[in-house]
Nucleic acid binder design. Structure first.
Length: 262
DNA sequence: CTGGGGAGGGGGCCC
DNA sequence: GGGGCCCCCTCCCCA
């Protein structure tokens, strides 16, 4: 059984902002100044299913603009909340589906239209309408608001979605159409299969710039990069100790954090 | 017990 | 609308 069907995420209170987290992870926050930025490979591993090219690593050219790690506010739950830094003022990084390349949020302008689900305000009705649709996939909708929305139910599990596309995507996790020709293991998406195939081929296209290690998975490289950082991404709210992984923080908390704040 | 690597899944964004 | 890709997250296992 897929592991993710067993346990859902511990902390999902904040909607992830990928644009923001990408900025933090790969550009600024979690790489101490003593380390240059990691060279994450660009999107050139898409052909792993059919061939296994040697992937060159092109260091990202963006300069370091580090946020002083020592000044990071403690965050008892999950990642350090760097969104509260001066680089992301309230409302500036709108959670408008992560499309932060758009003009600044209307929050900074004269807001006229207020969202009925949250505190956001917009200067145009269209912007408000677009924003409010983002609430319609949230299970905690007001009943009267969700009652008129179509619901697509998964026939394999109790989950339901507001769009057929989302449901189809979910159903793939049940049907597992991507099958490894080597071992027969099935996956929901092709890129998952590609990552799995690397376990057979030994391909490790994601190399650490700080040591000789290489990884088959970008997420694992990212986690590994945390080990090179003196200030880890996840911080205990009680003892301010930092950890490279959320799971380590969970273990730390589960074992009973008795360390006084130092 | 802790830290880290390996493997994998889900949701979301972009093209 | 679908596919590709990304990020976040989790669990398992081992040193």
């Amino acid at each position: 059984m897929p592991r993710s069907f067993l346990v859902k995420k511990y902390f999902s209170s904040k909607k992830p902002c990928y644009r923001e987290s990408l900025l933090l992870d790969s550009q600024t926050a979690f790489v101490p100044e003593s380390f240059p930025r990691a060279a994450l490979p660009t999107q050139n591993h898409s052909s792993a299913l059919t061939c296994y090219p040697a992937v060159p690593f092109t260091p990202l050219p963006a300069p370091l603009s580090p946020i002083a790690p020592a000044s990071l506010p403690p965050s008892p739950l999950g990642p350090l909340d760097l969104s509260s830094s001066p680089f992301s003022s309230s409302g500036e990084e709108d959670e408008d589906n992560g499309r932060s390349s758009d003009p600044p949020s209307p929050d900074a302008l004269q807001a006229v239209y207020h969202c009925m689900y949250c505190a956001k305000s917009y200067t145009s009705l269209s912007a408000l309408s677009h924003h409010q649709t983002s609430h319609l996939c949230v299970p905690s909708l007001p009943a009267e608001a969700s009652a008129s929305r179509p619901a697509f139910h998964c026939k394999h599990c109790p989950k339901e979605y507001t769009s057929l596309g989302a449901l189809k995507m979910h159903i793939r996790s049940h049907t597992l159409p991507c099958v490894c020709t080597t071992c027969g293991k099935a996956f929901s998406r092709p890129w998952l299969l590609r990552g799995h195939i690397r376990t057979h081929t030994g391909e490790r296209p994601f190399a650490c710039q700080h040591c000789t290690r290489a990884f088959a998975d970008r997420s694992n490289l990212r986690a590994h990069l945390q080990t090179h950082s003196e200030v880890k991404k996840y911080q205990c709210g009680s003892c301010s100790r930092t950890f490279s992984r959320m799971s380590l923080l969970h273990k730390h908390n589960a074992s009973g954090c008795s360390s006084p704040t130092s």
